[in-house]
Design a protein around this nucleic acid. Structure first.
Lengths: 143, 143
DNA sequence: ATTGAATAATCCGAACTTCGACATACTTCC
DNA sequence: GGAAGTATGTCGAAGTTCGGATTATTCAAT
């Protein structure tokens, strides 16, 4: 493999910094008070993994179990999440979003999509396809 | 402007999520205790803007002034940063990294570069150039 | 069947972080 | 000289994360 030049790396780094700074979710979606980052990630994970347990979330987000316990507490308190004891294993807890929680998750996803649209805006359709292909290639590579 | 398809957006979103999760700085650089995110950003900003003031940092990082006050306190306490009263305006404070601070900043930058190298690894030289050009185009666009 | 280890989740308290209100020191502008 | 404005810091309240104990349940092995 040829080695990227320092120049290339510097350009990429500068681009990423601006990227991260500019394309930030404006989390003032409505009258509801915004969730902190962990709670948002938790909400989104549960949206995609209904009836998962706190430990699954903790592993995925790489935080302590007790931290997820706090996060789910906050989400329950805000009426976005329900905790249920499944029949099979009564030690466990199955997390599931309420209707409000689902709506909130959908709103976040919509906001993400809007962000992606803005990102892709400056690119032509060909460039867009190319960009998506390249980043997908980067991500799909195991290392 | 043609509109990106939902499919494209979904692919891009999935890629970004994996991207953010995978390419995360392992901040265990050495025997020193790792800096928290804000302190790291502060360190890097000061590295690039020597003799800047706390308010500059606060504006750039979009946090309260007192928060930067705490962050610089921590950095000073760890011997990475010095505060000086400039002659011109004695209300102000000029922030400047110590030798240790500079070394630490260089280490972070090196770690970033290493990360970028790993990212670009799966791409051919042509693809690499293309990717960097595309992301630069996205970022340079005013919207 | 019983007991002991393993597992899922939570409670509790310590440490840390962020930030708003207020305070302090200095500068600038009449 | 004094009022108003600017740069920064102090202090305390509120919120967050996490390790260590605790509770409840399941599993495994006798």
């Amino acid at each position: 493999m040829t080695i990227p030049t320092d120049d290339e790396l510097a350009t990429l780094g500068a681009a990423f910094e601006t990227f991260a700074r500019r394309y930030k979710l404006a989390d003032a979606l409505g009258p509801e008070k915004p969730l902190n980052e962990l709670d948002k990630q938790t909400l989104l994970y549960i949206a995609e993994h209904p009836r998962c347990g706190p430990t699954d979330v903790a592993r995925f987000l790489a935080v302590a179990n007790t931290t997820i316990s706090s996060a789910t507490d906050r989400l329950v308190k805000q009426g976005l999440l329900g905790r249920h004891r499944p029949e099979g294993d009564r030690r466990a807890v199955a997390l599931q979003l309420t209707a409000d929680g689902e709506a909130r998750a959908r709103a976040y996803i919509a906001a993400h999509y809007e962000l992606y649209r803005r990102m892709l805006g400056p690119l032509s359709p060909t460039e867009r396809t190319s960009f998506i292909a390249l980043i997908t290639k980067i991500v799909h590579h195991e290392d």
